[in-house]
């Protein structure tokens, strides 16, 4: 690995330690920022936009009387304000604060204003990942790249995965495959396990719920299965009630993946709403506010279809959480 590779910089959202659902063993998951889909159920909204992004936690604000620094230049006029009344804590006009960045965050002494996403080099990321290396050895774990869509930063991801391999770590990615094939070609040679989403089968329904149709996604999947026969692929469906929690979808995914022996499993990730609060921090509206988690018996019924297709006699115990 050359210095230029380890100096490669990417936009990292978070590095999460001791993950157990993002590939084999105990893993360190590196979340990259930027996504090419807009799934309405996304539980990581802070990962969507491909640049650092302002967030606000009002409970940390000490108010105008004690501070009020964000009410003055260089912050944009009207971006921050205080309502009439006793509570003098800052409110954000998210439409006017959309250009606010590090300058505004630096003004905030309490950390109420903060940024999602920071530039990190491959070296910096791996130094942190390396801290968990003893757990990888014990558990057969390693490093997982997630997002957002980690393949949207192909050069950084490839360099990161390659260097992780050189340090002896198992590597995995979580991807939706909605990227140009040129990105896949760069990234996948350095990946051991590919966890990939089959969100919806029908192109038009995919467009409605995820912002774009799935033609590129399906083409990339097929090509990846065929181009990288030695890689392990695990298909996944975030199970959203009324959207894709039907037998037809499950069976069509099975029909898609079963011809390929390197697709070793198909997992269902029942919908949850754990990410909702983050929409608030970002000043965005969560569109599925009236959605609820699928019933356990419905999930089990669908899982039994998968078990049958994979020739498993007993239902798998799967308790994975939904990832975007």
């Amino acid at each position: 690995m050359t210095n230029s590779s380890t100096n490669q910089t990417g936009l990292v959202l978070n590095i999460q330690h001791f993950c157990t659902h993002d590939g084999p063993g105990i893993r360190t998951t590196v979340f990259l920022k930027g996504c090419s889909l807009r799934c309405k159920w996304c539980s990581n909204p802070e990962s969507i936009h491909p640049k650092p992004e302002l967030a606000y936690n009002i409970s940390k604000c000490i108010g105008k009387k004690q501070c009020g620094l964000c009410l003055k230049p260089p912050c944009s006029e009207g971006a921050f304000y205080v309502l009439e009344g006793e509570d003098d804590r800052i409110r954000i006009n998210w439409d006017l604060a959309s250009d606010c960045g590090q300058d505004c965050v630096d003004l905030c002494p309490t950390g109420a204003l903060y940024l999602f996403g920071q530039a990190m080099t491959v070296e910096q990321v791996l130094d942190e990942v390396e801290q968990d290396s003893s757990f990888y050895r014990e558990s057969g774990g390693g490093m997982t790249l997630s997002g957002g869509e980690c393949q949207l930063q192909p050069d950084f991801s490839a360099a990161l995965l390659q260097e992780a391999h050189q340090r002896g770590f198992n590597t995995a990615i979580e991807t939706a495959f909605n990227v140009p094939w040129s990105h896949v070609e760069k990234v996948l040679p350095h990946v051991d396990v590919v966890l990939h989403d089959h969100k919806l089968t029908d192109p038009e329904r995919h467009k409605k719920w995820c912002g774009v149709d799935n033609r590129q996604i399906l083409a990339n999947m097929k090509r990846a299965y065929e181009t990288f026969p030695d890689k392990t692929f695990i298909a996944r469906t975030p199970l959203i009630p009324g959207v894709n929690d039907d037998e037809d979808h499950i069976r069509s995914v099975l029909a898609f993946i079963r011809p390929y022996h390197n697709v070793i499993d198909y997992e269902l990730l029942p919908y949850h709403r754990f990410g909702e609060s983050k929409y608030g921090f970002l000043g965005r509206v969560y569109e599925l506010k009236d959605f609820t988690s699928p019933l356990p018996e419905s999930v089990q019924r669908l899982r039994s279809i998968i078990d049958e297709a994979f020739g498993r006699s007993s239902p798998l115990e799967q308790t994975h959480e939904l990832k975007p």
């Binding site: 608030g280 000043g283 965005r284």
Partner: peptide, 12 residues
């Protein structure tokens, strides 16, 4: 969900 969206929110 909407706490930080809501101008009247008192905490997150």
């Amino acid at each position: 969900l909407k706490a930080s969206l809501s101008p009247l929110a008192t905490d997150y």
